[in-house]
Design a protein around this nucleic acid. Structure first.
Lengths: 142, 142
DNA sequence: TATGATTGCTATTGACAATAGCATAATGGA
DNA sequence: TCCATTATGCTATTGTCAATAGCAATCATA
């Protein structure tokens, strides 16, 4: 047997996630974005009032880790910080950011299509529901 | 909607893998093992001739990263390095290592059971095959 | 108003993985 | 058999994502 651990769900999950994230990361290098940066852009899309902490809550990124992430997007002039009050900042996409988002969407959509294509058709419809059952349960608890 | 990205297979995969790995890591802390260390112990089980590089090939851990990993297991007196020839080292479990492996198996089995239990029954049988289709394809190419 | 919660931040650490390079040893083809 | 290639184990460094602890300012509410 090639890998005696491959029958373990947790192990298979870890290996699959790693391969897939390397794939997407590689694709995103073409537009100078990291995985976490791309997910933030995709989330901001269409909103003009979302705050840093709200992004963090939704994507499960801690406030401390949001800071350098947003700084990098800021340095690339993809986002703007606009004060909502004297404490909170609304994060919005710049024109440059909107252009980058279009390219991000194209890349992620192609990626997701390719990913699903790799899954045998009889398992395909079960994939997302099974995964979401694993992590969304926790977030509803929190 | 709580998370507008949750319908994306890749995103769901990443989130699920993270939650699950935090879960297992936490459980393994009770026996002073990291995820990668536990997987190495599980792989060595029952073999007395496996080398560092072979472990790396199977688990997809690079040689450079195997070194500190095995050093940590060595420091805990869980493994022994036995020269096979003047270049290769066979990695074997010490008595201490075998005891730790028993506990590792108990923890991972409980973990895998709990994991599957969280997946709705109608999706359960599709889980491992779908995941393995994603990463095992790549390893057969290599 | 005072207490507690929230926000954005700094600084540091940890786990896992990737890259580059090195010395030595094994191996297979000419 | 000799030599080029490959394999092995290693050092050292870097990158990505995530976690923890702590801080000052602000906000919300009992």
């Amino acid at each position: 047997m090639r890998d005696p651990l491959s029958h373990l769900p947790g192990y298979a999950l870890r290996r699959a996630a790693h391969v897939i994230m390397v794939d997407l990361s590689t694709r995103l290098q073409a537009i100078d974005l990291k995985l976490s940066e791309a997910s933030v852009l995709l989330l901001i899309d269409g909103r003009d009032d979302i705050t840093s902490s709200e992004i963090g809550r939704i994507l499960d990124i801690q406030r401390a880790n949001m800071v350098p992430l947003l700084n990098r997007l800021d340095a690339q002039k993809l986002i703007q910080r606009r004060p909502l009050d004297r404490k909170s900042m609304a994060i919005t996409l710049t024109e440059e950011g909107k252009k980058r988002l279009v390219r991000t969407k194209a890349i992620t959509q192609a990626f997701e299509t390719d990913l699903l294509a790799r899954i045998p058709q009889e398992h395909r419809d079960h994939f997302v529901p099974a995964l979401n059952a694993l992590w969304m349960a926790d977030s509803s608890t929190a």
